[in-house]
Design a protein around this nucleic acid. Structure first.
Length: 293
DNA sequence: TTACAGAGAATCAATGAGGC
DNA sequence: GCCTCATTGATTCTCTGTAA
């Protein structure tokens, strides 16, 4: 079976997806029963590519290493790296492949314990993976509904790899299964601390209940989400006081507090010094150190 | 998930310092 | 004296954390 989804319209869409930092998108997929000695490369790819071997044997070369692979093995190719792979001359392999990209592509591979140091994985969920690729191929007609279907099968494909990896590993890469929620929360705070965000907004963004979120956040960070947000904002404020000449009102606005009076009060409560006094002290320290030079 | 106590956020008024 | 900016205190309402 030859790879599909190679027309120019698809590539235009992929360019759009790449530009807009979509989490995950499918580039192409396929399934092939290789001829003896059939090879590909040395060549590079512009996306992440996973091959999964259904039967037979072959070799895969990357980073100057050669891997001898067979049934249930998967190997991963990273964008822009030179690789080579070849089917065995006596027992050539049959494999499926999925090329994909997106902001979360590498993270997904990591969850499946696939990375540049560990390019090979063993996954017994053959039937599930084949069904996903067949699903993608059956939805090849270019319609919006099929786009969603293909993306759905891509998520299921990666989910199957991750699931099996988690079952095999004694410990997940996370100490807590819900640690990922906290990571998303930290990311959300980092991107939105300058806006009028509340703990409820963070919980909504992650898609879990507010009180449940506060609970797990504190379990991992040892501080409540709100406390963390305040500390984060005040640290940013201290940096702005040190490195800029912005007024207290402007700084207050930049860290997400619409009311400079409240910001000033909060700053004093946490640091026992008003923002203006803090700035004066910093300036005095700087001029003293210059005189000392 | 819910209820509730307590903390945080918002608002207003008063005051002070500094510049014009 | 007037204006702007910053700070502080008091009050009220909203939101958050937590236990059940």
């Amino acid at each position: 079976m030859k790879p599909k989804f190679t027309n120019s319209a698809r590539y235009k869409c992929l360019e759009y997806l790449k530009k807009h930092s979509v989490d995950l998108y499918l580039c192409y997929c396929g399934m092939e029963e290789c001829e003896p000695g059939h090879y590909y490369g040395p060549a590079t790819r512009s996306e992440y590519l996973i091959h999964y071997i259904l039967s037979g044997k072959g070799i895969f070369q990357a980073d100057g290493k050669t891997y001898h692979l067979g049934e249930y093995n998967a190997f991963v190719i990273y964008p822009d790296e030179i690789t080579f792979y070849q089917a065995d001359t006596e027992d050539p392999w049959t494999y499926i492949w999925v090329g994909f990209g997106g902001a979360k592509a590498e993270t997904c591979l990591n969850y499946a314990s696939l990375n540049k140091e560990n390019r090979i994985g063993v996954f017994k969920c053959k039937e599930e993976l084949v069904n996903c690729v067949k699903g993608m191929l059956n939805a090849s007609k270019l319609t919006y509904a099929n786009d969603l279907k293909r993306e759905g099968f891509l998520f299921m494909f990666l989910s199957a790899l991750i699931n099996e990896n988690n079952a095999n590993e004694q410990h997940n890469i996370y100490d807590y299964p819900y640690q990922i929620y906290v990571e998303h929360a930290l990311e959300f705070i980092d991107h939105n601390y300058d806006k009028d965000i509340k703990v409820n907004d963070i919980a909504n963004y992650i898609g879990i209940d507010r009180s449940y979120f506060a609970n797990i956040f504190k379990k991992i960070m040892h501080v409540s989400p709100q406390q963390y947000l305040i500390n984060y904002r005040l640290e940013k404020a201290r940096n702005l006081l040190k490195k800029s000449n912005l007024s207290i009102s402007e700084i207050s606005e930049r860290i997400g507090y619409s009311d400079p009076l409240y910001f000033s009060k909060l700053f004093k409560k946490y640091y026992n010094i008003s923002p203006t006094e803090y700035r004066t002290q910093i300036e005095e320290l700087v001029s003293a150190s210059k005189k000392g030079e």
